[in-house]
Structure formats: C-alpha cells, structure tokens
Design a binder for these strands. Sequence first.
DNA 1: GTCTATAGCATGATAGAC
DNA 2: GTCTATCATGCTATAGAC
Lengths: 230, 230
Amino acid sequence: MIADFESFKIQLSLSKIETCRELYRQNTDMIRIKKEEVAVKNLVRIIDSTLRLTYAKGFHAMSLRDLCADSGFSIGGLYAYIKNKEDLIYLIQSHGFMLARRTILAYTNGITDPRDKLLTAVKAHVYLSELMQPWFYFSFMEVKSLPKKQKQEAIAVELEIESIIYDIIEEGMAAGVFRRLNAHLLASLCKAMMQDWYLKRRKYRNQGTSVTQYAEFVGDVLGSYLNPRS
Amino acid sequence: MIADFESFKIQLSLSKIETCRELYRQNTDMIRIKKEEVAVKNLVRIIDSTLRLTYAKGFHAMSLRDLCADSGFSIGGLYAYIKNKEDLIYLIQSHGFMLARRTILAYTNGITDPRDKLLTAVKAHVYLSELMQPWFYFSFMEVKSLPKKQKQEAIAVELEIESIIYDIIEEGMAAGVFRRLNAHLLASLCKAMMQDWYLKRRKYRNQGTSVTQYAEFVGDVLGSYLNPRS
DNA sequence: GTCTATAGCATGATAGAC
DNA sequence: GTCTATCATGCTATAGAC
C-alpha cells in the first residue's frame, strides 16, 4: 500500500539521470557521443527542454532552433544525439513507458483486498503522473502524430492501464465486495478522472487541490459507487 | 428535460449552413467575397476540411496546401476567405462558442429539481459534444496555441461550463437533496468525465457504448455519490 | 470569384572548421 | 564533441491573369 506522496517520490527515485543512462546504453547506435558521462548529462538537458517547449507550444510548433536556444546547444551539437526530429519523440516515449508500466504494476501486485487494490492503483497512477506530468501530457497530446509503431505502443500502454483498473473491479465483483455493474464503462471513467490530473494540472493548482486529495477523492467516488446497495 | 438524443439533434437543428451564414454576416470585413450565397457555401467547406485535417494530424501539421487539396480550393481562392492561417482558428472557435454556451443554458434553465437539473446538464453537454465532436476536440487540443485573446475566451467558456455544474451541486446541497461534499472537486471530475466522450470517442465506439448510455452512466455515478448517507 | 505563379522566409538537415 | 555556415525544402502569403 502507498503511504504518502513523499515516500512514493523517494521510492520511485525518479532520477532523471538514472533513466537517461539506461536510455543511452540502449541507443549507442543512434547517439554519436562515446563518453557516457557527457552523453547522459546532455540527454537530460535535451529531453527536459523538449518536454518544456512541447508543453508550451506543441511539438510541431517547436523548431529545433527553439530547442537549441532553450537547451543551450547548437544545431550541429544537437544532431550528435538524434538523427532527425522524430528521434526526440522516440527518446521521450521510451523511457516514459518503461517507468510508467513498471510502477503501476509494482504497487498493485500483491494486494488482495479489492478496495485497497483499487485505491492503490488510482493513487499510484495519480502520483506517477504528478511526478512525470510533462511526459504524460506529451504522450497524450502527441499520440495522434506519432509514427505508426509508437502510436500503437502508446495506445496499448493506455489500454493496459485501463485494463488493470478493469481487472480490479471485476475481481471485486466476483468476490461480492463490489456490486455488479458495467465494469468497462467504470474503468473508462476512472481513467478519464485520473487523466484530468495531468491534463488540467494548472487548474487544480489554482484551486489549491493537492495530489493526495485528488487521488483520494477519485478513489472515494469509485468506492462509493461500487458499494453494494442495501 | 431532454427526451432522447434524436429529438435533441432535431431541436438543436445544427444546420452548419445556418451557423456559417451568421458567421459570414459578422465578418464581412475579413471575408472578401460579396455574394452571401457563395461565401456561406464555401465557408462550410473550409471549416469542415480544417476540422477534419486538424483531427487527423493537428492544426500546425496541417499546411494550407493540405487544406486546399481537401476542400478543393486553390491557395489564392482560400485567401479570399481568410487573411492568414490564424483566421481559420477564429472562424472555427467563434461559431462553436455561440452554439455551445447557448445550448447548455437553454436546457438547464427552468429546471428546479437538482437531480433532474444535474442529469440534464450532463446529457446536454454529452449530446452536444457528440454532434459537434470535431469542434470540441479542436477546441481542446488547440487552446495552447491560440492567440492570447481567444485562449482566454476558450478557458473562460470551459470554466463557465464547470461552474454551471458547480452551481447545480451547490443548490442541491443547500436544498438538502445532496449531501455536503467538495463541490468544486466533484464539478471538475464531472467535467473530466464529460470531456472523455469527445477526447476518446473512437474508444467508446469500439466498445459499443452509445451516447445516451454514457451520459446516463456519468449522471448515475454523480447522483449516487451525492445521495445523502443513511 | 477563382486560378496560377512566385516571392520571401523559416525550417530540418548536413558539411566541415576547430 | 561542439560549433558556424550553408543547403534544400516546404511553408505562408501575395500579385496578377482570367
């Protein structure tokens, strides 16, 4: 079970550098830089800038000159890390997928009580999207323009998350802890609610909603709806 | 109260031509064409094509050449209706706003029972977004890149819709029909759920969910959560 | 009112100096 | 390993024929 946001943050140990090192090692063919230390440090800069600029104006609207200005690179320098603009998408997507999938499953596995399990899945997702908000936002907004293979992967990951929720609901109904209802629809609504946390993050910040408050409210709405009626 | 989707559709009388005529009359300065009949017919073509292409690949990725190919215009011909690419956004946004705001309020005004009113607001929104899906999608995806003034308007319209829901919840709590809870958060979640209908429309079509089924399910989740506890 | 032709510019990508 | 200089392309926008 997830204790609180702060310990989640630590457990996840979302070291960007760590993730980028893994990314570098998997793509030594694409990246021309030989010194791991240098390459990893710069990958972090490139990915950070891309996420920031895409959040501000969209990936297509972001030019590579924009990216260079923001990350402090020159055009030529940048092209040592990618062979074309599309590679930026690949870099960002791949390390995000790894992390997201792993985390959700790690937290839900091993829990048996359906109510606990549902709340944990919701919390894990909302907490994760809080820590990786730029990535979640990027992934959502850019699916449409992704190259075919990555588009399918993105959709598959999303359906996977929804099916984790679906399975928990089904288990709970089978165990008689939840009442019988349309589990597909409820799982979709759950996804929609969790999604809003990273799509409309500024709104929630403005109205002073904390990440824990949000996750628990969503969990409460679901839990209440699933209660067997008297 | 809304009877069913089909009669909603008829009552809305979403005549594209009618809306575009109004749009033409409001912008005779921007549009160089003098014959109303010709202008209106072509505005429909232009708006239709823009929405379709933007849905497929995003507004920035759509070139004016793409738009010409799809709408059957030439570059020069197109520029008789707009003075630059940004004007396309303006055309699309303005007629959408008019229609959306009017409709929701028209349906909810006059209803006194909070439960009825909430369900009606949800239904009106979901039905509306079903009929104007390309516009809602466009509006959501392109807010970021909108020129300042239109960006503010878009955000204002969205908050307005959320506050309609919020007010209904508050009224119901004051009347003792709903139990006391965080109305701001619940209104946000309601918006998030309604929103998913036009953001993930393909998913819902694939899983065979009808627009009425969706709207009623959302209404049911909310209504159930708002029930006073025994 | 609509077309073709083209200007003018910003972009993605490369070559080669250091 | 990083930079500057440059190319080729595709874009928005305009001019002028019909």
